[in-house]
Write a protein that binds this DNA or RNA. Sequence first.
DNA 1: TTGTTATATCGCAATATTACGATAATAAAG
DNA 2: CTTTATTATCGTAATATTGCGATATAACAA
Lengths: 107, 107
Amino acid sequence: MGVSKSELFNSQQNEIAQVAKVLAHPARVAILQYISRQDACICSDLVEETGLAQATISQHLSEIKKIGLLKGNFQGKNLCYCIDKDRWETFSTLFESFFNRISQQCC
Amino acid sequence: MGVSKSELFNSQQNEIAQVAKVLAHPARVAILQYISRQDACICSDLVEETGLAQATISQHLSEIKKIGLLKGNFQGKNLCYCIDKDRWETFSTLFESFFNRISQQCC
DNA sequence: TTGTTATATCGCAATATTACGATAATAAAG
DNA sequence: CTTTATTATCGTAATATTGCGATATAACAA
């Protein structure tokens, strides 16, 4: 075995888990913070910034992209990413209500 | 290879990642929600509620415990868990400021 | 003590993640 | 077209996670 049984849970629970999975690696947290500071992202900057290999950064970026958090545009010869603000707000609200609901109901 | 290079990142980034990792499975999201609704948790209830085996639930509970989110007390012959509210608020604030800071700086 | 019930841990198999070198693809520059 | 720079993908090795049956542990009941 070893396959997550996601079909046992509702879609909100699965969505929280899916977003959390992306945030569950410090490199991806750092990448998101860096992109938001720069209002853009050049992959080679991230390589320098983090000390990870270029291939690794690229993989992390594609994990973040998978859940729709990145918008990419070309700027000169570098691929320029920026955070999809709508999507970010959606997830922010999702987590906020998750955290708050449990706080309210809690012992 | 295959070991996360957490030493490359700061402690806040690692803490966010660590908490996110716990939330990165729908079973654990469901368990937290269930415990907060019941203001207690009986492991066998979770087995029924989720459809996972008892051993699996117990493992998920110990992941949640690891980051200090559960307080356990004996109540009759059942182990009764409840969420550590202080710790929950700490993490809630951590995520809230992470989400908000990026929103503000974002494109 | 013995039996019952609830939870934790062990051991294992299946799968997923992480990291990186090598290499391919893409686009600007000459 | 060729070169150069940047990013993506492939292949692979190391490690981590997930799930469950089997078994151990703990507490109450009789």
